[in-house]
Design a binder for these strands. Structure first.
Length: 919
RNA sequence: GGGGACGUGGUGGAAUUGGUAGACACGCUGGAUUUAGGAUCCAGUGCCUCGCGGCGUGAGAGUUCAAGUCUCUCCGUCCCCACCA
């Protein structure tokens, strides 16, 4: 009995096929003009030192199922994988241990690859990308230079070469309203003559204000402990996301990307995308488009005026004070002599303030001493300075309407400022019933005042800010820029890639310069100093999906030919936490590459799926305080107990293995256990984030060792809907594993291979077509759990009825193949007597016969409570008589009713007809 | 404060998208068979009732021949963003 063939030996099957696939390059793809393409992509992982846990592969498995499914459908499927390899953890590790980040990173990648391969994922590894390879970051640097060499034409909504801007300046002067520049542009406009008189250095300095990659003195989030600036999405509650170090504001010269120029395209592009509404909403909020008005408030004692931005111009009669941000350029002008001391004190305090958690700040502010004139009422209104107004939104100045705005009200109450309720009473706005109407009226009134101040301006404003594109770190892409007289110039393209140099220490220099300043001869060929900043984390992930199309090209990011074949990503799977980081930057980067005729489409990711997080189920044993006696959780009410996290591996069939627990820690060796009435010892179960300290993590390798990769894949998909957050639980893997064993045994009788060639009965055909329909529909809707259920169901039926027919087992095996590829390959090879090399090369997804289904299942009559109910497909756009006639003439009508009388028939418009009879 | 998602058995979750609610799985109960296998097989399992039958998708209303699904109100849960004028 030892060598029964019906034992499902997953370990042997899986290692056999994984080797076979690798040896025969089954998943290698090339351009094939005779086949339609499909591009499915995972967000490539950052290879951390901890390896993968069971929550990571969820998305990988989902995209692998789609990749294999599409392959079987006849598509040429691009399904690549790579590694986002630059980043802080490897560098922090290097600082602590002295080991070069390249080595740490390489080791981590090897481990990740091994884990991924064991899961039977069908990646074309010949296309692997690592962002830290110079052959890859060559093209990241190339794109950066491209951004540097272009400006944005707001009229055409498109990037154009900087040379064209030079020509325009020479012809028309620099006052071009359609050339995108900073929101607080302080550069004076030049006439054409003045421009032409500038020497080339002066022109270059001037052009920096228009390049898509530019430098600017800016207030940045500085993290002293990490020695670098951080992006907003790298900070949470005033602390760095990595490491939890404090973050302060600091002024520094920074590289930035003019992503704000693309705000409108980033916003409108969302409409065409097949993303979840919540994902689109997050991006819309991040871009933060608003329609409003710029209004000037003249100062009472000087010729200056304060420009404010408001979306609610209709509340202008309720304005009782103005507020400037502490960094506002007019703060110096409006501060009176008497207030100077307190204003300076306030400014000092706010400048040093840590980023406090939002919503917890106290209301603070200081009076400037000056007054502005209300443009409509002529009243003198005080000007305040407060940090609740942000310099980088609007103009850094607001008109405060404490009657309508909660923040203004809070401020007014704090400083005892007047609040005008019902401020429209007695004004021209009294008759307006809609906000929009009132705003229009205000616009007209302000436009027609004959005051000397500037007229109001309609304005569309965006919250999105230009992205800071520099980190003062070592382990990132060097920025391919050199300086001549402190003006930045790009390296010639032929000198790329600019290699990351080796250095002896990863700390900043004693002068506070970034680590790259430690490199020997960090200059270009002519001795000009090179940029010492490196690129931020999102640089390498902004075009990797294009590189996969042609990963070994040494002349371009990717060839025209490859890109015009593979186009954009059809399906992108990854976490929703990248909504405001990577997914915005990558879309921006891709739009720029589209503008310069490289990327074939506007948008990079057509369909997006965000896999939900997998949580851990922690187990806590309760110990009576001060004793070594453990109490079953259902009995703890009468005891004062202490919770102790227990390794989930110590559980068998949902119960704590007490002997294993005693052996786990020496202190528990002598512990005693109080069980409940059923003789069980229960632990408290808590669903929470996976964490090593709670002993609730599990690696995919452990599951594969015990149950095999196919079971892991099925189980991860069977847990629930892919986008949902859900707990991992060890006890339920058995179910899907049992299904695979059952499926395997379907092909055997008494330990021997037994598949017959008999034709299928109508009943069996119905079952088959129904299953094909359900599995295909579910898979195409990414409802993988439902698809698996359908396959389980049919397997149960076949097992019970002992149906072992080739004509049903073969299509079912192919249906299972995307989900459990190893077992499917093995059974398929046996079914076809190993005539064919691989299911994934030659298999074809079975089709269902729609007519067959319609006749046999959809319209099948069903008995409900003694009545017969069925539906008929009819032409329902006719009159009543005609429908009645159709029913009477319908072939099925006579067959099903067999003389029973119709008591009721109901027409559902445009759909079908329900007929109900008495029995 | 703003936005989004959701609420179905003891549990995870299905429901041809408006048409037999609870598929499939876990768990549990009983039984069969076998013991070295991560067993297998059969029956049962929403609630009330001995049964007939009745009631059931967070609560209440509405639309409809028909509502878990659509509309409104309320209750509750989760997530994201947030001094954005």
């Amino acid at each position: 009995m030892k060598d029964r063939h019906d034992i499902y030996d997953f370990a042997a099957i899986e290692s056999k096929w994984q080797k076979w696939w690798q040896d025969h390059e089954v998943y290698k793809v090339d351009i094939d003009p005779h086949k339609p393409k499909y591009y499915t992509l995972d967000m490539f992982p950052y290879p951390s030192g901890a390896g993968l846990h069971v929550g990571h592969p969820l998305g990988f498995i989902a995209s692998d199922i789609i990749a294999r499914y599409k392959t079987l459908q006849g598509y040429n499927v691009l399904h690549p994988m790579g590694f986002d390899a630059f980043g802080l953890p490897a560098e922090q590790y290097a600082i602590e241990t002295g080991q070069h980040p390249a080595i740490t990173t390489k080791n981590n990648i090897e481990r990740y690859k091994k884990q991924l391969k064991r899961m039977g994922l069908s990646y074309d590894w010949s296309r692997e990308i690592r962002t830290c390879d110079s052959s890859y970051y060559h093209w990241t640097q190339w794109a950066f230079i491209g951004l540097f060499q272009h400006w944005f034409d707001k009229k055409l909504q498109k990037a154009r070469p900087i040379e064209e801007l030079k020509e325009l300046f020479a012809r028309h002067g620099t006052h071009l309203s359609y050339a995108a520049t900073h929101s607080h542009d302080k550069t004076p406009s030049l006439s054409a003559d003045e421009w032409q008189k500038l020497n080339s250095e002066e022109q270059d300095r001037y052009l920096l204000n228009y390049r898509l990659a530019y430098q600017e003195e800016a207030s940045v989030n500085w993290c002293e402990a990490l020695g670098t600036v951080l992006a907003n999405d790298e900070i949470q509650d005033g602390l760095s996301v990595r490491g939890g170090h404090p973050v302060t504001q600091k002024n520094m010269k920074q590289w930035k990307l003019r992503i704000t120029a693309y705000a409108e395209r980033l916003l409108s592009g969302l409409d065409s995308l097949d993303w979840s509404e919540s994902m689109k909403t997050v991006q819309r909020n991040w871009i933060g488009k608003s329609h409003g008005m710029d209004i000037h408030f003249p100062l009472s004692t000087s010729s200056h005026s304060i420009q404010i931005y408001t979306t609610r111009a209709d509340t202008i009669y309720g304005v009782t004070f103005l507020v400037l941000a502490p960094e506002h350029p007019l703060v110096k002008v409006v501060t009176t002599h008497e207030q100077k001391a307190s204003v300076e004190k306030y400014l000092n305090r706010t400048a040093q303030k840590l980023e406090a958690p939002h919503g917890t700040q106290n209301t603070t502010g200081v009076l400037s001493g000056s007054f502005a004139i209300h443009p409509l009422t002529g009243h003198k209104i005080p000007i305040w300075i407060s940090d609740y107004v942000l310099m980088d939104y609007g103009h850094g100045a607001i008109m405060a309407v404490p009657a309508d705005d909660e923040r203004d009200r809070k401020f007014a109450q704090c400083f005892n400022l007047p609040i005008i309720e019902n401020h429209t009473v007695g004004t021209p706005l009294e008759s307006c019933s809609h906000t929009q109407e009132a705003i229009e009226k205000i616009y007209t009134i302000l436009t027609n005042t004959d005051s000397t101040t500037s007229k109001p301006k309609r304005r569309i404003n965006y919250k999105i800010k230009d992205a800071i594109f520099a980190r003062q770190r070592y382990w990132g892409e060097p920025i391919p820029i050199y300086y001549k007289n402190h003006i930045p110039y790009p390296l010639p393209l032929k000198d790329l890639p600019l290699l990351l140099p080796d250095i002896d220490s990863y700390h900043p220099t004693p002068q506070g310069d970034p680590p790259l300043a430690r490199a020997d001869h960090w200059t270009n060929k002519h001795g000009h100093p090179l940029e010492t900043n490196t690129m931020p984390g999102f640089a390498g992930s902004s075009a990797y999906f294009l590189r996969y199309c042609d990963p070994h090209n040494t002349h371009a990011l990717a060839s025209k030919e490859a890109l015009s074949y593979w186009q954009n990503v059809d399906l992108y799977i990854g976490g929703s936490e990248h909504a405001t980081g990577h997914l915005i930057y990558a879309r921006f980067w891709h739009m720029f590459l589209h503008d310069i005729d490289l990327a074939p489409t506007q948008e990079p990711f057509q369909k997006m799926i965000n896999q939900g997080m997998i949580l851990g189920t922690s187990q806590y044993a309760h110990r009576s305080k001060g004793t070594n006696t453990f109490i079953s959780y259902d009995l703890t009410r009468s005891h004062d107990t202490q919770r102790i996290p227990v390794d989930i591996r110590l559980f068998r069939q949902g119960h704590l293995d007490i002997e294993a627990f005693k052996a786990w820690r020496s202190e528990y060796a002598t512990a005693t256990f109080q069980c409940n009435n059923n003789g069980h010892f229960l632990c408290e179960e808590v669903v929470e984030k996976m964490s090593k300290s709670l002993f609730n993590t599990m690696s995919p390798d452990e599951v594969i060792d015990d149950y095999g990769a196919d079971t892991l894949r099925l189980y991860e998909m069977f847990l629930g809907p892919i986008e949902q957050t859900k707990p991992w639980s060890v006890t339920k893997i058995e179910g899907v594993h049992r299904f695979l064993k059952r499926f395997w045994r379907l092909f055997f009788r008494q330990g021997e291979w037994h598949v017959s060639d008999e034709e299928l009965t109508d009943k069996e055909l119905t079952l088959l077509h129904k299953t094909i329909y359900e599995v295909r529909r579910s898979t195409e809707n990414y409802q993988f759990n439902t698809a698996i259920s359908a396959m389980m169901s049919v397997t149960n039926i076949l097992t019970r009825q002992e149906i072992r027919k080739y004509h049903i087992l073969k299509p079912l095996t192919i249906l299972l193949a995307p989900y459990a590829p190893h077992i499917a390959e093995e059974l398929y090879a046996r079914l076809e007597s190993t005539k064919v090399p691989s299911l994934f090369k030659h298999g074809k997804l079975p089709d269902y016969n729609e007519d067959f289904l319609l006749n046999n299942t959809w319209n099948a009559p069903v008995a409900i409570n003694g009545k017969v109910k069925f539906t008929l497909p009819l032409q329902l756009d006719e009159n009543k008589e005609s429908i009645q006639k159709q029913i009477q003439q319908h072939e099925k009508f006579h067959h099903i009713l067999k003389g029973k009388a119709i008591t009721k028939w109901i027409i559902i418009p445009n759909k079908m007809i329900n007929i109900v009879t008495k029995k």
